[in-house]
């Protein structure tokens, strides 16, 4: 891009108001020069919103009619159930606690996750849109393998196989475009994924797997229990 600024131009000025955007740096979001079709908020959007809300309430109602909210025995401080589980969205954390010391699993890792989420928009790596292998391929490969090995080693050290396996799979996927170098198809699609995309995908996969394991696969003494052996 050579121009310092670009203007949004529409063919029908009555439909689309003119907007001017100033672009100061190359890394900023691109402004497409496009003639975007517009719609009246009412009814196009409002009706959709209402219908979506209605469907949501209907689904919730049907679920509520057939599945009762759990209510166990009255609280008894003298009897700890085995296993004692937190609500499901914390079971990923509880699963982490099973592997790592409490300070790491219960404090540092979740704090890191929240901080990492908060700062996402402020890091260049996240704003970049280029694929992972766009720049210096050799350098990227060395860094990726080093970081990947280090991570796998730590996970192996703590015997966190539920995290190790997805980590290896994702690193494998990241390496596919390096090996194959095809520009089209699914490999091409993989190749065009940015680093931030990969990190987020890794984080989400791990979070989902840990939560699922904690919810469905953990029984008394936090031992591995298949869902058909009983849900705890």
């Amino acid at each position: 891009m050579q121009k310092d600024f670009s203007a949004e131009v529409a063919s029908d000025a009555k439909k689309v108001p003119r907007r001017i955007a100033f672009i100061k740096a190359r890394t900023a979001a691109r402004v497409k020069e496009s003639d975007e079709e517009m719609a009246m908020t009412f009814p196009s959007l409002v009706v959709k919103e209402i219908i979506a809300f209605e469907i949501m309430v209907i689904v919730l109602t049907l679920v509520s009619l057939f599945v009762d909210a759990p209510l166990e025995w009255i609280a008894n401080a003298e009897h700890t159930p085995n296993p004692a589980k937190a609500p499901w969205y914390f079971l990923g954390l509880q699963e982490l606690l099973h592997y790592f010391p409490p300070v790491v699993g219960g404090v540092i890792l979740p704090m890191l996750a929240v901080v990492a989420l908060v700062v996402i928009p402020y890091f260049r790596v996240n704003v970049k849109r280029e694929g992972l292998w766009k720049d210096d391929i050799r350098h990227t490969f060395v860094v990726l393998v080093t970081v990947g090995s280090l991570l796998s080693f730590i996970l192996l050290l703590f015997e966190v196989y539920v995290m190790l396996v997805p980590t290896l799979v994702i690193i494998g996927c990241m390496l596919i475009p390096y090996i194959s170098r095809k520009e089209t198809g699914s490999i091409g699609w993989l190749g065009s994924r940015s680093l931030s995309w990969w990190i987020m995908t890794w984080f989400v996969t791990i979070a989902v797997i840990l939560t699922a394991v904690g919810t469905l696969f953990r029984g008394p003494e936090w031992s591995w229990t298949w869902p058909w052996e009983g849900l705890y």
Binding site: P43, S44, V47, K48, I50, I51, E54, I55, V57, I58, T61, L62, S64, L65
Partner: peptide
């Protein structure tokens, strides 16, 4: 626009019907 209205009508009626089930069950 007419399809939008029809959907809106159908879902609104469905919502009312579904909301009536719990008091009936009661």
């Amino acid at each position: 626009m007419n399809t939008g209205r029809t959907y809106f009508a159908i879902w609104s009626v469905a919502l009312l019907v579904v909301l009536a089930i719990s008091p009936l069950k009661d």
